[in-house]
Simulated assay, not measured.
Amino acid sequence: MTTDHEKALQTFHSKLLDSGHIMHVTVKYITGLPFYYLQPEAHVSKQQLEEQIKIAAAKAMKGKRLTLTMSYVRKSQAGYVYRVRFLVPQRKMFCCGNLCDDCIRFTNP
Results as ranks from 00 to 15, higher is better:
Gln90Val: 11
Gln48Trp: 02
His13Gly: 01
Asp101His: 13
Gln47Tyr: 09
Gln47Asp: 12
Cys100Asn: 04
Arg74Met: 14
Val25Ala: 12
Val88Ser: 05
Leu33Asp: 10
Tyr36Thr: 08
Tyr72Arg: 01
Gln52Gly: 00
Ala60Pro: 03
His24Val: 10
Pro40Leu: 01
Tyr29Cys: 01
Thr26Gln: 14
Gln52Ala: 10
Glu50Arg: 11
Tyr36Met: 11
Leu38Glu: 03
Met61Glu: 11
Thr67Trp: 07
Gln10Ser: 13
Phe94Val: 07
Lys28Gln: 14
Ala56Ile: 03
Ala57Phe: 10
Leu38Ala: 06
Lys15Gln: 14
Tyr29Thr: 12
Ile30His: 05
Met1Leu: 07
Val44Tyr: 13
Gln39Tyr: 00
Val73His: 07
Leu99Phe: 08
Tyr72Met: 09
Thr2Trp: 06
Thr26Val: 15
Lys7Ala: 09
Arg105Met: 13
Arg105Asp: 13
Arg74Ser: 12
Arg105Leu: 14
Pro34His: 03
Thr26Arg: 14
Lys92Trp: 11
Thr3Glu: 11
Thr67Ala: 11
Thr107Arg: 15
Leu16Asp: 10
Ile22Leu: 12
Glu50Ile: 06
Leu17Gln: 05
Met23Trp: 00
Glu50Pro: 03
Val44His: 05
Leu68Phe: 05
Leu99Asn: 14
Val88Ile: 15
Val73Gly: 07
Ile104Cys: 10
Leu66Phe: 06
Arg65Gln: 15
Tyr80Met: 05
Tyr82Leu: 08
Ser71Ile: 03
Ser19Ile: 01
Leu17His: 02
Asn98Ile: 07
Gln47Met: 11
Arg105Pro: 00
Leu9Phe: 12
Thr11Arg: 09
Pro34Phe: 02
Pro40Arg: 03
Arg85Leu: 06
Gln77Gly: 09
Met61Ser: 08
Thr3Lys: 10
Thr69Leu: 06
Val81Gln: 13
Val84His: 11
Leu33Pro: 01
Thr31Ala: 04
Lys46Cys: 01
Leu17Cys: 02
Cys100Glu: 11
Tyr72Val: 02
Thr31Cys: 01
Pro34Ile: 04
Ser71Leu: 09
Met70Ser: 10
Arg85Thr: 14
Lys64Val: 00
Lys28Ile: 00
Leu66Arg: 12
Gly97Ile: 04
Glu41Tyr: 09
Ser14Leu: 10
Leu9Tyr: 07
Gly79Glu: 02
Phe106Leu: 14
